[in-house]
């Protein structure tokens, strides 16, 4: 993995994918937002909301919210490398919960695609909060590339991607 940041491979595709991600029913339900992207990396966030709480006594977000955030951000980090639209599907995801998220503040996730194979993409992700250097969770995932004929993203960019094949 490079250390010096480069722009995402296809900015139009990348933007199309993150804006498509954020409007998907479940992502918009949890309030997923795009923060930043570069080649091999992506950052997204979920704002704090009481409807996302898993333990009413502590007000801490449910682990499922962190899972959704890590899944989406990891997938987006794969797209930061891609030239053209395709469908990818999560094969597996392992999440280590290091500490509880502090109630009231958003959770960020930065994911890195550290190996893009022809068939499989490998990702690792960190979930964290502003004002605390200790991450709340780590996530490692694998994604199947070209998992279906229908490419992800809005129709326009997806079609351009198909034409490029």
């Amino acid at each position: 993995m490079h250390n010096l940041p480069l722009p995402v491979t296809n900015p139009a595709l990348f933007q199309d994918i993150w804006s498509w991600f954020c409007q998907l029913p479940h992502n918009s339900t949890i309030g997923l937002e795009f923060v930043a992207g570069e080649r091999g990396r992506a950052t997204m966030l979920v704002p704090y909301h009481t409807k996302l709480v898993g333990n009413p006594k502590t007000g801490v977000l449910h682990g499922g919210v962190v899972t959704s955030l890590i899944d989406a951000t990891s997938a987006l980090s794969v797209f930061s490398f891609l030239e053209s639209a395709e469908a990818i599907a999560t094969l597996d995801l392992r999440i280590d919960y290091l500490r509880s998220a502090t109630p009231g503040s958003p959770v960020f996730c930065t994911a890195e695609c550290y190996r893009l194979g022809r068939q499989i993409a490998f990702t690792r992700a960190t979930a964290y909060q502003d004002g605390n250097d200790q991450p709340i969770a780590y996530g490692v995932g694998t994604f199947m590339r070209d998992s279906s004929k229908a490419t992800l993203g809005s129709e326009t960019v997806a079609e351009a991607g198909d034409a490029n094949r």
Binding site: H26, N27, G63, G64, T67, S68, L69, I70, T90
Partner: peptide, 22 residues
């Protein structure tokens, strides 16, 4: 609201994960 891919359509991976963890 639990859909994560409107093209297939399919449930969100995070929903499946959250449902199982819960």
């Amino acid at each position: 609201r639990n859909v994560g891919n409107t093209k297939l359509p399919a449930l969100h991976g995070g929903v499946i994960g959250g449902f199982l963890e819960n």
